[in-house]
């Protein structure tokens, strides 16, 4: 697929929380269907980058340009409504878009089925495992058919096997329906599995894009950087 249009552009974006500087004059451009891995140690502002894109917070200075369209967000914790069933959790954002309840639920059931959760549609979150909840969260984000998918350390609480399964699932989804993805993590192995571009954020506000050439060499470099 040809990559042309700029989907997200950060121009000298600075973000402070009170007197604490988080992002310092950050500039980058993300093109359509890029799968960007944002890496860096904890506390460097990776989540803040996603929050800025999702309009959950505003920059202290600088400009953020992004195309209009739906945004899917997979959080570190699933953030499901505990009092609604799996199918309701996936269908509610669709209903928020104006899709009729019955159609939204049918669509949601389809996505749950793709995630291997068709038998658990009517279960409440409290009755499901952590991996299942995160798959529901992913189904909720993908069901919207978003222009941009933001993923904030989505599988950090899962075991290695489940994490690999989830990453394979995402890769399969992206090859079927390519979208622009920002995948934030402090674990290089995860990011390198799906990313087509890799950004590295450091504590001193340093930001750079690392070319993906030799993956094993890059992995070592990233592991050192994320320590």
């Amino acid at each position: 697929m040809e990559k042309t249009d700029s989907v997200i552009t950060f121009e000298n974006v600075t973000k402070n929380y009170g007197s604490l500087p988080i992002l310092n004059s950050l500039s980058f451009e993300i093109r359509e269907h890029d799968v960007v891995g944002v890496l860096g140690p904890s506390g460097v502002g990776k989540t803040t980058v996603l929050k800025l894109i999702a309009d959950l917070t505003q920059p202290s200075s600088g400009t953020i340009k992004k195309i209009s369209g739906r945004i899917g967000y997979v959080f570190q914790e699933p953030r499901l409504l505990p009092w609604r069933t799996a199918v309701d959790n996936v269908s509610l954002p669709l209903q928020a878009m104006g899709i009729r309840r019955q159609i939204a639920r049918k669509n949601a059931s389809g996505w749950l089925s793709r995630m291997g959760l068709d038998k658990f549609s009517d279960y409440y979150p409290a009755h499901l495992s952590g991996g299942m909840l995160q798959r529901i969260s992913l189904a909720r984000a993908l069901a919207l058919q978003p222009k941009i998918l933001l993923m904030d350390e989505p599988f950090s609480a899962l075991d290695v096997r489940l994490k690999e399964d989830m990453l394979s699932l995402i890769r399969a989804q992206l090859s079927e329906h390519p979208i622009t993805v920002l995948y934030v993590s402090h674990i290089p192995d995860e990011v390198i599995m799906i990313a087509t571009r890799i950004f590295l954020l450091a504590h001193n506000g340093d930001f750079k894009e690392l070319p993906i050439t030799d993956r094993s060499e890059l992995l070592e470099k990233l592991k050192n950087a994320c320590r």
Binding site: A54, L56, I71, Y73, F75, E77, R79, L81, L92, P93, A96, M97, R140, L144
Partner: peptide
């Protein structure tokens, strides 16, 4: 966090 989720999904 649930309110934030509802905000993101409009």
């Amino acid at each position: 966090t649930v309110i934030e989720m509802a905000q993101i999904y409009n």
